[in-house]
Design a protein around this nucleic acid. Structure first.
Lengths: 229, 229
DNA sequence: ACAAAAGTGTTCACTTTACACCCATGG
DNA sequence: CCATGGGTGTAAAGTGAACACTTTTGT
C-alpha cells in the first residue's frame, strides 16, 4: 500500500520571501525595487526585494536577513514587517519551482543601499511601477491592497513616521496612502478620541509659523482602531 | 565569488497545506479534525486536515485534492476556501522541515467520511478542542480569528447556509460565529439596507407557525459589507 | 384556540459631516 | 507687519441601539 517516497519527490520546491517595502518621500508613496539578475529569463528588469529561505530559518527570519544583506537595513526593528500571502503558482519562476511568501514592510528611513548593500535598490513611486520580473506586479498589488486596508482600521501608519510627529504630518501620511483628502478638524478629533495618539507636550519650532504640537502613538503594537473617513 | 549550490541545499523543505474547515451544526460551530498517524511522534492525536503539496500543483489545488481524497468532498465548489497564513517554524514538524500553508474552509454539508474517505475525520465543537498534533492548535486559532473577523465585514457567512434561507437562520449563523446575540429588528434592517441579501418570493412552510420568507445572497463573491453590531 | 416563530417602527443618543476664521511664530 | 501653517467649534444629517406587540400558521 505504501509507496516508497524519495526525498527529491517531495522536496522539489525552493522557498523564498518577497518583500513589498513601502516608504513615503515628500508627498508620495514609494516601494523598494531592486535589479533582477536571472539571465537568460530576466535582463534589465526590476523586481521586489527578496531571497531564499534557508534550511534553519523561518520566513520572518529570512525577510530580516535579506533586508539586512541586500538592502543594508541596520536595525531591522525599524522596519515593520507582516506576512501577506504565499504565492505557489507552478510556473511563477521560469527557473524552477519557487514558492514565495510575500511580506509587507514599512519604513520611514532611507534604507536603500547603505552599508554596502549587495543589490542595487531604489525607491519607486507606486503610481509608476514598470513591468516587474516574475509575478512581482501581482505581489506588489497584493501588498498595496493590504497596506491601504490596514491604514483605515489600524495604527499601522505609525511606521511611516518618526516617534514624534505633528498632526499635519500624520494626516498627510494617511491621505497619501488612502489616496484621498480628509477634513483637518474631523481627522484630528477622531484620532484623538480614539486615543490612538497622544500629545507629548513638546512643540516643533523653527519655521516662520506657529509651532506645531508633537504627538506620539499610544501603542507600538498594531491595534484595531476603525479610523475610516 | 559564487558558491556552488547543490539542489538539496535549497530544496530542503516539504510543502504542505492544512485546512481549518468550519461548519455549523445545530447551534454550534464545529471544525473538522482527523486522526494523525505519525508514530512515534504522535499517537492517538487529532489534527487538522491537510497533506503535501505536489510538484505540479498550487497550494489551492492541494487543498482541493486533499479535501476530495481525505475527507470525501464531492463538489469542491461547495467548500469555500481562502488562504490564511504560512507557518514556517523550523521545528513545527518533528519529522523534518515542513512549511505549511493554512487555509480557512467553510461548508454547509456534512463532508465527513463520505465516498470512502481515506482518513477518519470528525466535526468537533470549537469550544472544546483538545491538544492537537504539531502546531495545529495555533493554526486552528488563526483560522478561527480570521473567520470571526470576516463574518463582521463581508458576506462570508453565506457559506454556512444553503442557497435559500430565512432571516432567522442567517441571524443564528451570524450569532454563533461572533458569539453574541443581536437585536432581530436591527439585524434585519441592516442586512437588507446593505443589499447583502434579497427576498426570493418563496416562503418556508410546514411548521406550526407563520411561514418565513426565503432569501438569497445577492453576490456569491466575497464582498465587503461592514455589518458589525 | 393555542403554541410557536415571523414580522414590523419609533425614539433617543451619538456619530459623522460640512464648513471658515483666528493664532502664533520667524523673518 | 506679514506670510505661513497651526489650531479650533457648531449645526444638521445620519446612524446605532434599545425596546414589545401583532401576524400567521399547523395541530
Amino acid at each position: 500500500m505504501n509507496k516508497i517516497v524519495k526525498k527529491e519527490d517531495i522536496q522539489f520546491a525552493v522557498l523564498a520571501v518577497d518583500v513589498i517595502c513601502f516608504r513615503i518621500i515628500g508627498k508620495e508613496l514609494y516601494v523598494l525595487l531592486g535589479e533582477v539578475n536571472a539571465a537568460p529569463f530576466y535582463k534589465n528588469k526590476l523586481g521586489l526585494i527578496g531571497g531564499l529561505i534557508a534550511p534553519e530559518e523561518t520566513a520572518d527570519e529570512a525577510v530580516a536577513r535579506h533586508m539586512k544583506n541586500k538592502v543594508g537595513v541596520k536595525k531591522i526593528k525599524d522596519v515593520y514587517r507582516e506576512q501577506v500571502y504565499t504565492f505557489s503558482e507552478v510556473g511563477r519562476d521560469p527557473r524552477g519551482r519557487v514558492v514565495s511568501v510575500a511580506y509587507l514592510a514599512i519604513t520611514n528611513k532611507d534604507v536603500r543601499n547603505i552599508n554596502k548593500a549587495a543589490v542595487k535598490t531604489n525607491w519607486h513611486k507606486v503610481t509608476d511601477i514598470p513591468n516587474l520580473a516574475y509575478d512581482h506586479n501581482e505581489i506588489f498589488l497584493t501588498g498595496l491592497e493590504r497596506l491601504r486596508a490596514k491604514v483605515e482600521y489600524t495604527n499601522i501608519v505609525q511606521y511611516f513616521l518618526p516617534a514624534e510627529f505633528t498632526l499635519t504630518q500624520l494626516q498627510e501620511r494617511y491621505e497619501i496612502i488612502v489616496g484621498r483628502k480628509v477634513d483637518k478638524r474631523n481627522f484630528r478629533r477622531k484620532v484623538l478620541k480614539l486615543k490612538m495618539i497622544k500629545k507629548i507636550g513638546k512643540r516643533l519650532r523653527g519655521k516662520a509659523t506657529r509651532p506645531a504640537e508633537l504627538y506620539k502613538f499610544v501603542s507600538k503594537e498594531i491595534k484595531i482602531y476603525e479610523i475610516f473617513f
